[in-house]
C-alpha cells in the first residue's frame, strides 16, 4: 500500500518535472531567439548607417529592451543557483547534512525578504504605466514586467527546492 503510494507520487513527480523541463526548453528557445534578434539588429544598424546614412533610432532601444528581457527570463527560468556567481567556500567544505541546512537557511532568509517585498515590487511596475520609452513609446510597465516575472519565478523555484530538500531522497538533490 505504502509502496504503491510512493510509486504514484514518483510517477506524478516525473510528469511534473517533465512539464517543467519542457517549459524551460521553451524559455531557452525564446531567449536564444531574442539574442539572435539583438545581434541581427546591431549588424543591420551599422550597415544602414554606412549605406543609407540613417541612424536607425529604434535599434538601440529595441536591443536594450530585448537584452533586459533575456537577462530576467533566463535568471527566472534557466540559470540554476549553483551556476550563478556564488561564494561557495563555506558550502563546498560542509558534509551533506550541513549543505542541506545551509540551503534551507539561505532560501528562508532571502526568499522570505523577497516574498515580503514582492507586492510592492509589482505595485511599482504597474505604477510605471505613465512612462514610456523615448523612441518606440512602449509603456514602461510592460517593458519592466520581466523583473516581476523573474522575482516570482525565483520564489517558485525556491519553494520547489525546499520541497525537494524536505523529502527522503534529499541527498540526491543537493
Amino acid at each position: 500500500m505504502q509502496s504503491e503510494n510512493a510509486m504514484t507520487a514518483s510517477a506524478d513527480r516525473g510528469a511534473w518535472q517533465k512539464a517543467i523541463r519542457r517549459a524551460q526548453r521553451g524559455v531557452e528557445i525564446l531567449c536564444n531567439l531574442l539574442f539572435v534578434i539583438v545581434f541581427v539588429v546591431f549588424l543591420y544598424k551599422v550597415a544602414v548607417r554606412h549605406t543609407a546614412g540613417d541612424a536607425v533610432a529604434w535599434a538601440d532601444e529595441v536591443t536594450v529592451v530585448l537584452f533586459i528581457w533575456i537577462i530576467f527570463l533566463a535568471n527566472g527560468f534557466l540559470v540554476e543557483d549553483r551556476r550563478q556567481i556564488c561564494f561557495d567556500l563555506v558550502d563546498r567544505n560542509l558534509p551533506p547534512q550541513g549543505r542541506r541546512i545551509v540551503a534551507v537557511l539561505r532560501i528562508l532568509l532571502l526568499g522570505g525578504i523577497i516574498a515580503w517585498s514582492l507586492p510592492a515590487a509589482f505595485d511599482y511596475i504597474l505604477f510605471l504605466w505613465r512612462e514610456r520609452t523615448p523612441v518606440m513609446l512602449w509603456r514602461l510597465d510592460v517593458v519592466y514586467f520581466c523583473f516581476g516575472i523573474f522575482l516570482a519565478a525565483t520564489l517558485v523555484r525556491w519553494a520547489l527546492r525546499l520541497f525537494e530538500l524536505s523529502r527522503s531522497d534529499w541527498r540526491n538533490r543537493l
Partner: peptide, 23 residues
C-alpha cells in the same frame, strides 16, 4: 554577507539586501 556566506547567488543576495535596506 549572510546570504553570500550561505552560498546564495551574489546577485540575489544583493537584491534581497536591497529590499531589506528599504524596509
Amino acid at each position: 554577507l549572510t546570504g553570500a556566506v550561505l552560498g546564495a547567488p551574489m546577485g540575489l543576495a544583493m537584491l534581497a539586501a536591497g529590499f531589506a535596506y528599504l524596509a
